[in-house]
Amino acid sequence: MKLIGQKLSVERGEDLIFSDLSFNVSSGEALIIRGPNGAGKSTLLRAIANLLPLLSGELTVEDPDKEFGETEFPQLCHYLGHDNAMKPAMSVGENLVFWQKFAGQPHLDIEEALEMVGLSGLDSVPYAHLSTGQRRRIGIARLLVSYRPVWLLDEPTSGLDTPSQSQFEALMKVHLEDGGLIIAATHIPLDIGTFKELIFDGFVRETAP
């Protein structure tokens, strides 16, 4: 699978956030979007997820994976935004079970996913009791309980300490090795081997790996 963005422009409110932005990512590749706050990193991710309308330009998927057939592109994505989309009133397990049912395509068990993010045994704890870093890790566990080939990650490591960050980098590497595709916006360098970079700083630079 190859995701191609051609000459994308996005407007937010009355502002043109960026225009004529192009990129491409293939299965097994990661694209890291970097740049200062307010440069438009989150906007680009949300536009790719079809949560914001494109003003102009085109997003196309070339040779899609056969197993997903005609599935629309947003349905192939996991999106991890600033918020983790968890309900404080429900337990960690209930939250994850809900997302697994809601998203379909079950991948890991809840218990396995919690183990992957280093929080095994917490499934009956109310989400409200967790710390910021733990909440983020539950948000990451949501990516694991249902399978999606494309991960769209907005500042995925915010609130994570160094060990959790390297744990997450390992998870990202595994996802890429499995033929997944990652687009992440971050201002902290990620150690996930080779990746493409898109830098927002008044210019857009795309660097090949």
Partner: peptide
Amino acid sequence: QGDYEDGTLDQMMLMG
């Protein structure tokens, strides 16, 4: 409102 604030609404639009 709850879904809007905690990001659930984004997930609903994305894959619901």
